[in-house]
Write a protein that binds this DNA or RNA. Structure first.
Lengths: 178, 178
DNA sequence: TTTCCCATGTAATCAGTTACATGATTAA
DNA sequence: TTAATCATGTAACTGATTACATGGGAAA
């Protein structure tokens, strides 16, 4: 199998939009993909080095070591397309919130309600953020890229709404003394 | 911080229902928590050993090494309650499906639709499974444990429905030539 | 008697985070 | 000139999976 790290996909994907330094890469990933993807510097820099070695990316301003932007090569674009097409296997589920709620009867009094209220806050905040992004996306000119951006945003919207509804219902269903 | 592995919580939680061998533990976790939690043997056995050493669990039939069930001790119950009450930090998001869809314009033709159809299947299957569990839960006598079981099940139902709706909408929104 | 399931465990490996160390550039 | 931000990188660690090795017991 030898599943290569998905960090490569995220980096190549981000560089397919435009050249960036490692630092900018991390900021871009956090900004744009932050709701469903994450990279740390500890992953970005080593991965960038191996991608450079394999010829998938190159320095836009060679010579300089600090502050030089990386750009994707045509070989890199091919790798990106390949890697994107690979089947993805969902990692085994590990939902810390549900694990706690499942054994909720062992939780101190009030803690379950507290957990649910935190989820309501989180989902509400997320929905506000999504609404702002939605306004931006709607204003963009029609393009294939926009379709896919809209589609991932829609995922966030649907799931956040479901999460909010669930948490409210669950909170209401909780016995008073728990 | 020193966040201890959550495997301990899952194991102690499962043993709080009744004594089990490592093998049964894994089966129980897969059966009952399978939709939102997972443990592998490579985690279960070493964790069971450290839990035994720290006095959180003990062998129900001492002497025998193979096939002896582990039971939770009162110290173990205290540890479980403590660990459940700890704040949980959600791991950074890494949604492989969305990463692929976001860069969907780099996907080979038809692949995006294929991914979405697979999600529709997955969500549909999950909803069927949840319906069967729901029927069981409804039949159970009222108890605090049932409330929490119902609450985690409801999470699955809400999210699976949202997922299905999203995937169908997204599939319909996809341009024909993509 | 062979096959399947129950059962336990370890070693290698992996993807990823965190903490740390360091330095360049820019704005106040 | 000092503080903030931009920028790069490494080492240690961690939580976890996977593959492998082994063997008992039951049933076909």
């Amino acid at each position: 199998m030898s599943r290569r790290p998905q960090t490569e996909i995220a980096i190549l994907g981000a560089l397919s939009i435009g050249p960036m330094t490692g630092y900018e890469l991390r900021a871009a990933i956090t900004d744009v993909l932050g709701d469903f993807w994450h990279e740390s510097f500890g992953q970005i820099y080593p991965t960038l080095a191996t991608l450079e070695e394999s010829g998938s990316v190159r320095r836009a301003t060679p010579g300089r070591t600090s502050g030089s932007r990386f750009e994707i090569t045509s070989a890199g674009r091919a790798v990106l397309r390949e890697r994107l097409a690979e089947p993805h296997t969902a990692p085994p589920p590990r939902n810390a919130l549900l694990l706690r709620l499942f054994f909720g009867s062992e939780l101190p009094p009030g803690r379950a309600a507290e957990l649910l209220r935190a989820e309501i806050d989180r989902a509400t905040t997320a929905l506000g953020r999504f609404a702002a992004i939605r306004a931006e996306v709607v204003a963009e000119p029609e393009s294939e890229a926009r379709t896919f951006r809209s589609l991932t945003l829609s995922y966030g919207e649907h799931h956040a709404r479901a999460h909010l509804t669930w948490a409210r219902e669950a909170l209401a269903a909780l016995p008073q003394d728990v």
